[in-house]
């Protein structure tokens, strides 16, 4: 079985993000990068399937600048077998559609039975790429999975996906694409042997021409959306204590919440 995991290198969630003066990008200087935590769920699930079924290859695919190879190697350290790096200046400033177009073109070149992604990347928070890749590849997709079981025929699987207040159980054909929700698994810590073996595992680079795409289909040119402005959220205002007897204070609080904060 061949499982493809789409992963993204994102700023460490502990990093303080600053916006550049153009207000269209974040400042890259001094940022530490990690694999998006939801993508680690995807890799972990793929590795668990591999351990259960045997005879399985786990392939990780990412799009990004040269430094994104570190993210592929972090997945190798966990146990992934091989990687594809979609790296070309033409991919810069891709929106979700252009990203999905590029990923789908790459995955078409890889033999796959299952694609697993994080439910979203923790930088853009769009939750769109997984579904778009599935659409472009014309395969079923199940979002926010909490549990999965590949059937013995390896052509279908039973998948639980999270709903508000419950779970939905679906049977889905393979190949299909699943996106992972928190709680699906606990990603493993890379072992020392895994870390030391990362440089021995193969990474194949794909440029725009390798994928058979034109520069107009990818990056900023291939995007359907444009970032017009990026700005940090306003600083949180300090709390206010409503003084007085409880009966009066509650009335005052309700009034403030309705008229000032406009939350009720």
């Amino acid at each position: 079985m061949n499982i493809v995991c789409c992963i993204k290198q994102v700023p460490d969630t502990a990093t303080v993000i600053k916006i550049d003066p153009e207000e269209k990008h974040i400042q890259r200087e001094g940022i530490t990068y990690i694999v998006s935590p939801y993508d680690e769920f995807a890799v972990e699930e793929a590795l668990q399937i591999k351990e259960k079924l045997g005879d399985t290859t786990v392939t990780v695919v990412t799009m990004g600048p040269e430094r994104a190879k570190e993210a592929l190697r972090q997945c190798f350290a966990m146990g992934a077998d091989e990687g594809y790096h979609l790296v070309d200046d033409a991919f810069d400033d891709s929106d979700t559609y252009a990203t999905a177009t590029t990923l789908a073109a790459a995955i078409k070149k890889i033999d796959f039975d299952l694609i697993i992604c994080g439910k979203h990347a923790v930088d853009g928070d769009t939750s769109q790429v997984g579904a778009q890749v599935a659409e472009l590849l014309d395969i079923p997709q199940v979002s926010m999975i909490m549990k999965e079981e590949i059937n013995d025929d390896k052509k279908t699987a039973v998948v639980n996906r999270q709903l508000e207040g419950g779970e939905e159980v679906l049977e889905v054909q393979l190949p299909s694409l699943w996106t992972c929700q928190k709680g699906l698994n606990e990603p493993r810590y890379p072992t020392l042997k895994g870390i030391m073996g990362t440089k021995k595992k193969p990474i194949t680079d794909f440029t725009v021409s390798d994928l058979g795409l034109s520069p107009e289909e990818v990056g900023l040119l291939g995007s359907k959306t444009d970032v017009s402005k990026m700005y940090p959220p306003p600083p949180r205002l300090p709390g206010r204590i409503v003084e007085g007897e409880p009966e009066e204070a509650v009335k005052e609080l309700a009034k403030l919440l309705r008229e000032e904060a406009k939350v009720i």
């Binding site: 990690i34 190697r73 972090q74 350290a77 810590y189 890379p190 020392l192 870390i195 030391m196 990362t198």
Partner: peptide
């Protein structure tokens, strides 16, 4: 090295 960075991250997460 890149491997030591990975080890550091793994150790940080673990502890």
């Amino acid at each position: 090295t890149e491997e030591q960075d990975m080890l550091k991250r793994s150790a940080r997460n673990f502890v």
